[in-house]
Nucleic acid binder design. Structure first.
Length: 287
DNA sequence: TAGCCGATCCCCT
DNA sequence: GGGGATCGGCTAA
């Protein structure tokens, strides 16, 4: 079986409505579906009525963070979104921002992602169309977070994309701001902490490491990355040079047969912040 | 640096 | 009851 990993615009338009319909249903059904509802002290964060003339369609309305990427950015197929997180369409990788309760902002540029395509993808939690309370975020509107517990003690952070049950796993960040807080969080949360100071490249080089470093846990499940006040996405400042995106096999899904070999993991070639480097795949990456 | 392996517990069948 | 989108310590090369 072959799969087209670069769906065209027609795929874009026909799948969107389907998932949005489910979201409406989800919002009606579950209190968690309204996780992004602002608390009494917060401003209303509904979608912008109009966009400013100079504002990118990818930015949220004026009531969100000024640089916060809006819903439209996430409304693309999983592979396109996984690449867009690395800046392949926007020329610069996106920055994940986490604002802690005390106002501290932690920032990391996304350098590694994995795409999970939905029901047909044997490695996805939504394989075969499975929809359970745990993976519900995968079926919610693009930009919805899907946070799950792995091996009983770690968290992984996914972002729902276009297409039912499709999402993108965030695997690694280049820490840009709040490194000392990240180090503290990692040292506190990681298993068997020995007190050894973690190197910068050990802070966010893995899906669960970045969750620890950004204090992201199950409470973030089903929240909306386009509207949330504690976690959001921004455009990165332009980097020093153009980056090459490597497409490699995904990690840790050996049980998934042929799907385990498909090049659905994406990372920036040469980045020291990536969790797993695939030399063979890098040879195929275009400069 | 790479490979091996145990920890640990949620979630699904 | 068993598997798992991980991590980190230990060992060998």
């Amino acid at each position: 079986m072959t799969v087209d990993f670069t769906p065209g615009p027609e795929t874009l338009s026909c799948r969107t409505g389907q998932k949005r319909q489910r979201v409406l249903e989800a919002d009606r059904e579950s209190p968690q579906g309204r996780a992004q509802t602002p608390s009494p002290g917060e401003p209303c964060l509904g979608p912008p009525a109009t966009l400013g003339p100079r504002r990118s369609i990818y930015f949220s309305g004026p009531k969100s963070h000024s640089a916060q990427l809006g819903s439209d950015f996430f409304d693309q197929p999983a592979v396109a979104l996984a690449r867009a997180f690395l800046g392949q369409q926007t020329d610069c990788p996106q920055v994940l921002v986490r604002r802690l309760d005390d106002g501290t902002e932690l920032r990391g540029r996304i350098v590694e992602t994995e795409a999970y395509l939905g029901p047909e993808d044997e490695a996805a939690h939504s394989r075969g169309g499975r929809q359970t309370p745990r993976n519900r975020g995968m079926f919610m509107k693009p930009g919805t977070l899907y946070v799950y517990i792995i091996y009983g003690m770690y968290f992984c952070l996914n972002v729902s994309s276009q297409g039912d049950g499709a999402c993108v796993l965030l695997r690694a960040l280049e820490p840009l701001g709040g490194l000392e807080t990240m180090r503290q969080l990692r040292s506190t949360l990681r298993k068997g902490a020995t007190g050894r100071a973690l190197k910068d490249r050990e802070l966010c080089s893995g899906p669960s490491k970045l969750c620890q470093a950004l204090a992201i846990d199950k409470s973030f499940d089903q929240r909306d990355l386009a509207e949330d006040r504690a976690v959001w996405l921004e455009r990165s400042p332009p980097g020093p040079s153009e980056s090459v995106v490597v497409a490699a096999a995904r990690v840790g899904i050996g049980h998934a047969g042929e799907w385990a070999r498909k090049p659905l993991r994406f990372y920036l070639r040469g980045s020291p912040w990536v969790s797993v480097v695939d030399r063979a795949a890098e040879q195929n990456a275009q400069a």
